[in-house]
Computed example of a mutant assay.
Amino acid sequence: MAEAQLAHQAGFTTAMAAGRDARLDLIRRHGIIPIDHRRFPDLDHDEHRYRTDPDYKDRYRASEAEFLKVIDELSNGRGVAILIDHIGGGLHKASLKALARQGVITTAGWKAGMHLRSVRASECIQRHLHVHTHVWRHQDSPAIREYQNHTGWIADDDPNAVWDYDHIPQLADAHTHGMVDSYFPLCRITNPT
Rank of each mutant, 00 (worst) to 15 (best):
M1T: 13
M1P: 14
M1W: 05
A2Y: 03
Q5D: 15
A7G: 03
H8I: 05
F12P: 03
T14G: 11
A15F: 13
M16Y: 02
A17D: 13
A17H: 08
R23D: 10
L24Y: 11
L24V: 09
L26E: 15
I27Y: 11
H30Q: 14
H30N: 15
G31V: 03
I32Q: 07
I33C: 13
I33V: 15
P34W: 06
P34D: 10
H37K: 08
R39E: 07
F40D: 06
F40K: 06
F40M: 10
P41L: 12
P41I: 12
D42S: 10
D42E: 09
D44G: 00
D46V: 00
E47Y: 00
Y50R: 09
D53N: 11
D53T: 05
P54F: 00
Y60H: 08
R61L: 11
R61D: 15
R61P: 00
R61M: 06
A62P: 04
A62Y: 02
E64G: 03
A65G: 07
A65Y: 04
E66Y: 07
L68R: 08
K69H: 09
K69P: 06
V70G: 03
V70E: 14
L74I: 09
S75E: 09
G79P: 06
G79C: 11
G79S: 12
A81M: 11
I82M: 10
L83M: 10
D85S: 07
G88P: 08
G88H: 03
G89S: 06
G89Y: 01
H92L: 10
H92R: 08
K93R: 12
K93D: 08
A94K: 10
A94P: 10
S95L: 09
L96K: 05
L96P: 04
K97F: 04
A98S: 15
L99D: 12
L99V: 12
R101W: 11
R101L: 12
G103D: 14
I105V: 12
I105E: 15
T106I: 04
W110P: 02
W110C: 11
K111R: 11
K111T: 14
A112D: 13
G113W: 01
M114F: 05
L116E: 10
L116P: 07
S118N: 07
S118A: 10
S118I: 11
S118E: 07
R120D: 11
R120W: 01
R120A: 14
A121T: 01
C124E: 06
I125V: 05
Q126K: 14
Q126N: 13
R127Y: 03
L129T: 13
L129D: 15
L129E: 15
V135L: 08
V135C: 04
V135R: 01
W136A: 14
R137L: 01
H138G: 02
Q139P: 01
P142A: 02
R145V: 09
E146C: 05
Y147Q: 08
Q148T: 08
N149I: 15
G152K: 00
W153A: 04
I154F: 06
A155T: 02
D157E: 04
N160R: 07
N160L: 13
V162G: 01
W163K: 07
D164P: 04
D164M: 06
D164E: 05
Y165E: 05
H167F: 04
P169S: 03
A174M: 03
T176K: 14
G178Y: 02
G178V: 02
G178K: 05
M179N: 13
D181C: 03
Y183T: 13
F184Q: 13
P185G: 09
L186Q: 13
I189N: 01
I189Y: 01
T190R: 14
P192R: 09
